[in-house]
């Protein structure tokens, strides 16, 4: 039931009047541009949808709860998403 890349390609094909190959190419391209942007540490703001940002996490002491082993989690960068207010309202009222 989930919206997958294939479903997105099929829907976009009709909505934008593209061939299947064209639709696939633009979806892959958009995802590629987004990935590259985030890989460079740059945020991506899509008004009406949300904001993807890269956050720097410091190294910290962690613990494997299964083996109870102590370990150090190294400093790393993660992607976080914040939903836009517009989308948040649409989701909670089931329509804007």
């Amino acid at each position: 039931m989930a919206l997958t890349k294939e479903k997105l390609i099929t829907r976009l094909q009709t909505q934008a009047g593209l061939s299947k190959q064209e639709s696939r190419a633009v979806v892959e391209r958009v995802l590629g541009i987004i990935k590259e942007t985030l890989a460079q540490g740059e945020d991506l703001l899509i008004s009406g949808f949300g904001k993807f940002s890269v956050r720097q996490k410091n190294a910290r002491r962690g613990r494997n709860p299964q083996t109870k082993e102590n370990l150090i989690l190294r400093a790393r960068k993660v992607v976080v998403f914040k939903t836009s207010g517009v989308l948040r309202n649409r989701i909670n009222n089931n329509r804007s």
């Binding site: 919206l3 997958t4 976009l12 934008a16 995802l31 009406g48 949808f49 992607v79 998403f81």
Partner: peptide, 28 residues
């Protein structure tokens, strides 16, 4: 038109409580 349609499809999925799963990118 394309970019708007892509995000509108994703937003609509979330509004209707549907999961989004894009391999290599992420899931909502």
């Amino acid at each position: 038109l394309i970019v708007n349609a892509i995000f509108e499809n994703m937003a609509e999925a979330l509004v209707t409580n549907e999961r989004i799963e894009i391999r290599g990118f992420g899931s909502f």
